[in-house]
Measured scan of single mutants.
Amino acid sequence: EVPFKVVAQFPYKSDYEDDLNFEKDQEIIVTSVEDAEWYFGEYQDSNGDVIEGIFPKSFVAVQG
Rank of each mutant, 00 (worst) to 15 (best):
K13D: 06
S14K: 03
W38N: 09
Y43E: 01
V30T: 01
E27I: 14
E1T: 13
A8M: 01
I54N: 10
D45H: 06
D49P: 02
V7T: 09
D15W: 09
D49N: 14
A61N: 10
I28A: 00
L20Y: 02
N21E: 09
Q26S: 01
A36D: 14
W38H: 14
D18C: 15
A61S: 14
W38L: 07
V60P: 04
V33A: 08
A61R: 13
K5Q: 06
G53C: 05
Q26E: 04
G41T: 03
E52Y: 13
A61V: 14
D45W: 03
E37G: 10
F59A: 15
F55C: 03
F4A: 02
Y39I: 00
P3M: 05
S14L: 00
D19E: 14
I28H: 00
E17N: 10
E1I: 12
K13S: 10
S14D: 02
I28M: 04
E23W: 05
K24A: 10
G64S: 12
F40Y: 13
V30R: 01
S14T: 10
P11K: 07
D45A: 11
V6C: 08
V2K: 06
V50H: 08
W38E: 01
D18V: 11
D18T: 14
V50R: 13
Q63F: 11
K5L: 13
I51N: 10
Y12S: 03
N47Q: 09
W38S: 07
I54S: 13
K57W: 03
V50E: 02
Y16G: 14
V60Q: 02
E37M: 10
Q63G: 10
W38C: 10
V33P: 03
D25E: 07
V60D: 04
S32D: 07
N47E: 07
Q9G: 04
P56M: 03
V33K: 07
T31K: 09
K5N: 07
D19S: 15
V62M: 13
E52M: 14
I51S: 07
N47W: 07
Y12P: 00
V7C: 10
S46E: 12
E1Q: 12
E27K: 04
E23G: 07
Y39P: 00
S14R: 05
G64R: 09
D45K: 09
G48P: 01
G41D: 02
E23T: 06
E37I: 09
K5F: 09
G48V: 00
K24I: 09
S58P: 02
Q63K: 11
N47L: 07
N47M: 08
V30D: 01
F40C: 09
V6I: 02
V33F: 08
E1L: 12
S58A: 11
Q63E: 13
I51K: 14
Q63T: 13
A8I: 03
Y12Q: 02
E37F: 14
Y39V: 02
G41C: 04
P11V: 05
Y12V: 03
D15E: 13
P56Y: 05
S58H: 10
K5A: 07
F22Y: 01
V33Y: 09
E23N: 08
V50P: 05
Q44Y: 11
Y43A: 02
I54L: 15
Q44S: 10
E42R: 13
E1D: 13
F59T: 12
G48Y: 03
F40K: 12
E42Y: 15
V2W: 06
D15A: 11
V62P: 13
K24D: 02
P3L: 06
D19A: 15
D18E: 13
G64F: 09
K5V: 12
E1Y: 11
F10A: 10
Q26V: 04
Q26H: 03
N47Y: 08
E42V: 09
Q26W: 04
Q63V: 15
P56S: 04
A8E: 03
Q26C: 05
G64N: 12
V7M: 07
Y39W: 14
V7E: 02
E42K: 12
G48D: 03
S58I: 10
I29F: 08
D49Q: 13
S32G: 12
Y16I: 12
G41R: 01
N21Q: 11
D35I: 06
G64M: 11
D45Y: 04
E17H: 11
E23R: 05
F40V: 06
E23H: 06
G41Y: 03
F55K: 01
D19Q: 15
Y39Q: 00
T31I: 08
D15G: 12
K57C: 09
V7W: 08
D49G: 08
V50A: 05
F22Q: 01
A61T: 14
A8C: 06
V60R: 00
S58C: 15
